[in-house]
Amino acid sequence: MYIPKYFEVTDKEEIFAFVESNAFGQLISNVGGKLFSTHMPFLLSDDKTKIIGHLAIQNPQHSDLSGQEVLITLQGPHDYISPSWYASPGVPTWNYQAVHIYGKASVFSSSEKIKSVVDTLTQKYESSFSQPWKPEYKAAMLSALVGVEITISEIQCKYKLSQNRSSQDREQVVTKLNEVGSHELASSMVRNQL
């Protein structure tokens, strides 16, 4: 990913917090000589060295995955930025936050390990509900899945949040983003630079 210095994020705690909060992304690999992408949720291992998830066993991506260097892309809030929002001249652009994770993939079929992944994902996303659903799976449901584990070799993080603009321009962008309902991106800008 192209990352100009003023958009680069290198703080590991910030990067891993972003990964945990924006863990739905794309697993990109090669299937039969062609790039292939699956949109899916991911889990970061406790020691932050692996990314774990699962695919439907019918998804052809898992068949060529073991041993491949893969790319996972994760994205946070994003929106169009109009040059009319600046006090000084500018061009139309897009503000966003993104993480790219590279690593070597492996596939697993242990029903216990797959169940653990599915249970952990379910607990993570059900926990915000007033009456969380409790996992109850039949063995046949879990046998329709294959686990995926990526050992992280490199992480790139880019927060393009108007850091290259003046303080006045950044404040105006935050105001305009809030006006158009892009509150998460506006909050990210405030949290990360104003």
Results as ranks from 00 to 15, higher is better:
12 K>T: 13
139 A>G: 01
39 H>A: 11
49 T>G: 08
58 Q>F: 12
189 M>K: 07
124 K>V: 04
112 E>S: 07
153 S>A: 03
192 N>M: 10
65 L>R: 07
37 S>P: 01
118 V>W: 02
63 S>P: 02
191 R>W: 05
9 V>D: 01
177 L>H: 09
176 K>W: 01
189 M>C: 07
79 D>A: 11
174 V>G: 01
4 P>G: 05
148 V>R: 08
36 F>W: 10
59 N>W: 13
159 Y>I: 00
90 G>L: 08
23 A>Q: 08
82 S>K: 00
58 Q>G: 14
61 Q>Y: 04
150 I>P: 12
20 E>I: 07
45 S>V: 08
76 G>L: 13
180 V>H: 03
121 L>R: 04
110 S>Y: 05
70 V>Y: 07
71 L>C: 14
48 K>W: 02
8 E>T: 06
88 S>W: 00
114 I>H: 06
28 I>H: 10
79 D>I: 01
89 P>H: 04
37 S>T: 10
88 S>P: 02
180 V>K: 12
120 T>A: 15
30 N>K: 10
14 E>F: 06
35 L>R: 08
116 S>C: 07
149 E>F: 10
134 K>T: 12
151 T>A: 11
38 T>N: 13
132 P>S: 09
181 G>A: 11
122 T>R: 05
115 K>T: 11
167 S>L: 14
